[in-house]
């Protein structure tokens, strides 16, 4: 891999919404996730690429469970 710093492009963050609810996302830097409270889903960010697929998201009602 490159020496890219994990995280998310702030310009991308400005336009991203939850693909299910189309609601806002909160960036969780520690877990490297984009959290959609409305849909109850947390989308992972891997190597700086947000994975905006409901099937790949962690369900918030299973807090602590491994994705």
């Amino acid at each position: 891999m490159t020496d890219r710093v994990p995280g998310i492009d702030p310009k991308l963050m400005e336009i991203l919404v939850c693909p299910v609810s189309k609601g806002p996302l909160r960036y969780d830097a520690e877990r490297q996730e984009l959290v959609s409270e409305r849909a109850g889903l947390a989308y992972p960010i891997r190597d700086g690429i947000p994975i905006m697929l409901p099937d790949e998201a962690r369900r918030l009602d299973e807090e602590g469970a491994q994705p």
Binding site: T2, D9, K11, L12, I15, L16, V17, C18, P19, V20, K22, Y43, G48, I49, P50, I51, M52, L53, P54, E56
Partner: peptide, 22 residues
């Protein structure tokens, strides 16, 4: 990165359910 294009962001998503605001 190799081409020096610093303005390309990547995002994994489905065409039928895009994760972008209107």
């Amino acid at each position: 990165v190799r081409r020096g294009l610093g303005n390309v962001a990547t995002e994994q998503g489905l065409a039928e359910r895009l994760p972008f605001a209107d």
